[in-house]
Design a protein around this nucleic acid. Structure first.
Lengths: 248, 248
DNA sequence: CACGGATTATGATTTAGATCAAATCGTTTC
DNA sequence: GAAACGATTTGATCTAAATCATAATCCGTG
């Protein structure tokens, strides 16, 4: 066993290497964006541990042990922090191609809740395995760095939004960003279904649900968007961008 | 040359390896916190490229090429985003032991300005060299992951602050956090000098400078803190923590 | 050390968004 | 299909913080 195990391990690593190479060609470690259907099928085949998370279910919870990061194959998640007094703050919305759980590497404990807003499919990437692989695959940990770096830069944009923008600017910025993210994934940039409630959206934007609702109505009156409950249609994207003025 | 270069390169890497090993023992890659004077001296000796940045000078600017990350040896920095219309948003304050520039890995271009708020000393860590080294030093890139992960988690806390807290809560949270950071570095937790203006602090907290000033006065009246211009004395830390209520 | 610009403190007023309230619409459940 | 609950819209009022305004103070520089 002492003799065979290293060899087995080597073979195992090589096999995984191949897997991850494909993954990487599949656009930077599951992550970035814009999977075609073919690529998704590849992804399925490669990452053995695929899992279904039903609407309302937790992918992980604050305080639970960090063992893996998660690439979203399809569906929609929110991440949030819950407080003693019951208040919830939504820290992000995550969709196909996004990676979740990176903020837990430092403490090895999850620091937020991740909840599926619709039934979703994720691939679980055990972090120890990923670390092992990145040692023999420089590209892999370069990509991991990039992913985390991007998240930091994006968070700074959100901080800017929360700290400097007025309510209308925040909602406009959100709609434009969401539209771009859908578009990058091959969906319509002009028309999409919101997966979160007005309250969750308000929590993310630092607004109350009534304010979100009012601004949706106002944007609709002004012909900027069409709103039918959760179905949003961007009718005048440039108009929305103009709202942002000097910001973003 | 084709024969000797690989050997030279190998030697070079080994030499740097030693450097970085020491760096790591020096508390996770320059970074974490709490350098003693001895450790700092070691640090000086190890990282050849030490640099002085005078008060008001830029360490890097938005749009400039990303070549290195920076470990602060001493001093104080702010990072900020500047907008077309002249508005500035401060995204963070950074002190001894902090690492700056990680948000630029993704785009290979800096996405914010870093300005010294007092004359500061930094060690520049060329990123290509660091990447090279992390390939032969797993610990190194694990630490890099941890550092970035921590930054993401911290940013989420700031998002919470900006999105959910009232002005007094924000300032209380800021003072407590700053106190803890000073304390972790061996300085007094109860008494410290602010390096930023009320305006910069307001920008960071999503408040106007007048509001910051008023709340400082209010906290002083209530006996929570002492304020003499930039010198802050925490007189009732528990009182400040109580202000945060359920949050943080 | 005196000048001038930056920084801070504080008062008066305004306002964006929160809060309170109620009606409507959807959707899940029995 | 009716009841019950959650989500959304819209209106009326309130309030925390912004804005406007004016001193007072600090600090760098000639």
């Amino acid at each position: 066993m002492a003799m065979t195990e290293p060899i087995l391990k080597e073979q195992n690593i090589l096999k995984q290497l191949k897997v991850v190479c494909s993954l990487c060609s599949l656009r930077e470690l599951c992550l970035p964006i814009g999977f075609g259907p073919d690529e998704l099928q590849q992804l399925d085949a490669l990452t053995g541990s695929k899992r279904l998370v039903k609407r309302g279910e937790h992918l992980y919870r604050t305080g639970s042990e960090f063992t893996a990061i998660y690439a979203i194959r399809g569906g929609f998640f929110k991440t949030s922090v819950l407080h003693d007094d019951g208040r919830e703050h939504v820290t992000g919305f995550h969709m196909m191609g996004d990676i979740m759980g990176l903020d837990a590497i430092s403490t090895e404990t999850h620091v937020c809740d991740a909840v599926a807003l619709e039934t979703s499919e994720i691939c679980e990437i055990p972090f120890d395995k990923l670390s092992e692989l990145s040692m023999v695959m420089p590209v892999l940990h370069q990509n991991l760095h990039k992913i985390m770096s991007r998240e930091i830069a994006f968070d700074h944009e959100i901080m800017l939004m929360l700290g400097k923008m007025r309510a209308e600017e925040r909602l406009a910025a959100f709609l434009i960003n969401l539209s771009q993210r859908f578009s990058a994934r091959g969906y319509s940039a002009a028309s999409f279904q919101l997966r979160m409630t007005r309250e969750e959206l308000g929590s993310y934007l630092g607004l109350k649900l009534e304010t979100v609702s009012r601004i949706f109505s106002k944007f609709q009156e002004e012909g900027l968007i069409g709103v039918q409950k959760k179905l949003i249609e961007l009718k005048d994207t440039n108009g929305l961008k103009r709202l942002l003025g000097g910001l973003a």
